[in-house]
Simulated assay, not measured.
Amino acid sequence: MPDSELLMKLAVIIATFGRKEQLAQLLVHLERQERLPDEVVVSAPDETHVPVYEPRVFPISIVLGRRGLCAQRNRALEQVLERFDVITFFDDDFIPKDDYLRLVELAFQEHEDWAVVMGHVVKDGARTAGLSWAEGLQVLAAEPSKMPVKPKIVDHVGAYGCNMSIRMKFVGELRFDERLVLYGWQEDIDFTSQLRRFGRVIGLNTLRGVHLGLKIGRVSGERFGYSQIINPTYLMRKGTVPASFALPLIGRNIAANLVRSLWPEPYVDRRGRLRGNLIALAHLLKGRIEPEYIQKIAA
């Protein structure tokens, strides 16, 4: 392995909104990484979303500006361009295993044709009522006995944004699409799918972590329901995701909201999502595809 590959610089980017306490816990947790980040960049709308944190083992940069996941990630990207070989995006409610960044670096060193690498979410609280920080740590603590013997490598259309790493030399002028406002939804697939022309987009089961799926800082059910239909349609028309990915996703969303609106989960606003779905379908019938319309829907 060339010496130059041993000197990779790796930054972690965390876009955050309304989760100051969780972000503080994540920053402290990152100090346990076997391979420390060379820098952590936190992107927030303003200082009220950022905890007081004294850097001890890695430098930290704070960038402030307009609210919205795509806008916040783009501001952070501007901070790291041409300074790092790899960037890892973590959601502010994702807890990585302590070997996560070491294995990310190793993956990019050993596979020059990999453009994007995402890890395996051991447990995803986004699919349930969500997990507390203590519950997430308990899940990770039980992991050693379940570690895969052999790495499993799977190609994907795009990466799940709660934990994804990107080879920076491929990014260039590419940015997250800021028409996908607020929560963004599918912005991760849109961004990373465009990197497939440079290299493989890989899911790697040895990279492991827990996504708490916190409900604070999320958009309303109606807004999210609108995005469930419009965002995949917009990306399909844009050409960054295939119909074979977008149409089944839309169908599953509508079906789930229709069925579960009769007996909704206490932690999901199914009826709000269904209303958002119906507004989006009405817009599609009129040929109206505007992801940013959710800003006109009540929060």
Score class of each variant (00 low, 15 high):
residue 68 G to V: 03
residue 142 A to H: 02
residue 189 I to K: 11
residue 210 V to I: 07
residue 203 G to R: 07
residue 264 P to R: 00
residue 64 L to A: 04
residue 136 G to C: 04
residue 146 K to G: 01
residue 18 G to Y: 05
residue 46 D to P: 07
residue 77 L to D: 08
residue 75 R to C: 09
residue 232 P to D: 12
residue 194 Q to S: 15
residue 30 L to P: 01
residue 160 Y to V: 14
residue 167 R to L: 14
residue 55 P to A: 09
residue 166 I to C: 12
residue 98 D to P: 01
residue 230 I to H: 01
residue 261 S to H: 07
residue 8 M to H: 06
residue 81 L to M: 15
residue 100 Y to S: 10
residue 216 I to V: 15
residue 158 G to D: 10
residue 2 P to M: 08
residue 167 R to M: 12
residue 23 L to F: 00
residue 268 V to F: 14
residue 226 Y to H: 07
residue 122 V to F: 08
residue 197 R to Y: 03
residue 86 V to I: 15
residue 210 V to F: 03
residue 229 I to H: 00
residue 64 L to C: 06
residue 284 L to Q: 04
residue 117 V to D: 14
residue 272 G to E: 05
residue 114 W to V: 15
residue 13 I to N: 00
residue 288 R to A: 00
residue 9 K to M: 14
residue 80 V to Q: 03
residue 164 M to W: 01
residue 220 S to H: 06
residue 81 L to C: 10
residue 241 V to D: 05
residue 270 R to I: 00
residue 262 L to E: 13
residue 77 L to W: 09
residue 287 G to N: 09
residue 131 L to I: 06
residue 83 R to F: 07
residue 268 V to D: 11
residue 221 G to S: 01
residue 210 V to Y: 03
residue 190 D to P: 03
residue 267 Y to G: 03
residue 269 D to F: 02
residue 53 Y to M: 05
residue 5 E to T: 09
residue 32 R to Y: 11
residue 293 Y to N: 10
residue 228 Q to Y: 11
residue 244 S to I: 07
residue 157 V to E: 14
residue 152 K to A: 13
residue 38 D to C: 11
residue 295 Q to C: 12
residue 192 T to D: 08
residue 118 M to I: 06
residue 30 L to G: 01
residue 9 K to Q: 15
residue 147 M to F: 11
residue 94 F to G: 03
residue 143 E to F: 06
residue 277 N to W: 06
residue 38 D to A: 05
residue 28 V to F: 04
residue 149 V to L: 14
residue 145 S to H: 08
residue 42 V to Y: 00
residue 201 V to E: 03
residue 256 A to G: 13
residue 35 R to M: 11
residue 279 I to A: 12
residue 218 R to H: 12
residue 162 C to Q: 12
residue 24 A to F: 08
residue 110 E to G: 07
residue 47 E to Q: 13
residue 265 E to L: 13
residue 15 A to S: 13
residue 286 K to N: 09
residue 36 L to I: 04
residue 5 E to C: 12
residue 11 A to Y: 04
residue 172 G to S: 05
